[in-house]
Amino acid sequence: MLAYIIKRILYAIPILIGVNLITFMLFFMVNTPDDMARAQLGAKQTTPAMIAAWKAEKGYDKPLFYNEKATGTAKLTDTLFVNESLKLFWFDFGLSDANRNIAEDIRARMGPSLAIALPTFLIALVTNISLALLLVLFRGSVLDMSAMVVAVMIMSVSGLFYIIAGQVLFSKIWHWVPISGYESGWSGVKFVLLPVAIGVFAGLGSGVRWFRSIFLEQINQDYVRTARAKGLSEIAVLFRHVLPNGMLPILTGVVVIIPSLFMGSLIMESFFGIPGLGSYTIDAINAQDFAIVKAMVFLGSVLYIVGLILTDISYTLFDPRVTL
């Protein structure tokens, strides 16, 4: 088990290097630092001197991969690639373009992100699975059919509308919850309620359909026929046989996103003014702060890979056929 985890972590390294290369190419090779300087300073009256000064300030004045001017190993290390990309490996995110410590910002903002994302995730999971099981129990009935129609309709509306409609109804018209903002601790619950409710509802359509299709696929398997031939009631068949087997495809789809919950939701946080990583990212994109975007890309990839490893581990817990 431990050996397997170590192996997986080693295997993640080339992937992270790949992620680094991709971001590096995007940020430094598609456009030269000169281009970025011009874009940042305003395309018009930029003198070469201003560009050079901007680059020097950001540390973008080094060559990409190979520094001829440096000596010894510094030829390879005193380069943009090492300075800007490889150091991400030890979570050294450096300073943002607005000269803030990115790592500190990230630490401070993970909490609020989780406060929204985690409850949304858990409530959605439980609701979706329960509703899906209910529909599978009544499969083919009017209830099932009409629920599927409603699910498609829920899926067909952009999440933005749910947020806007939710804010208008619950905050602006009925004044049940504040329209936006955040506080830590229990007093913050009122800020969290609406985004969580909207998040759960917006995902209901696709979620229920997905879980339902997983369970329906199981219900046609031979072992379910065996279970029925044993004399088990339909509910017992569902909970004792279909659900545990359905857990396997569910794990594949669900566990992988758990670590990414830290990243928060871009839209939700920005609409509700939650000071989490999602809104951090959006602000960075709007301010064209490349350093932050780069850091978030790397962080996102790391969390995704952690998710993949967790998925594999969860398989060993639920599927006796898989051993590590």
Binding site: V19, L26, F27, N31, D35, M36, V293, S301, I305, L308
Partner: peptide, 22 residues
């Protein structure tokens, strides 16, 4: 696929903007 989709798109679009500005 390990890079979060929106971020990858955002990074791409940001770079494209710079390129078009230039």
């Amino acid at each position: 696929s390990s890079i979060p989709g929106v971020l990858l798109i955002a990074a791409g679009v940001l770079m494209m903007q710079v390129m078009m500005d230039n």
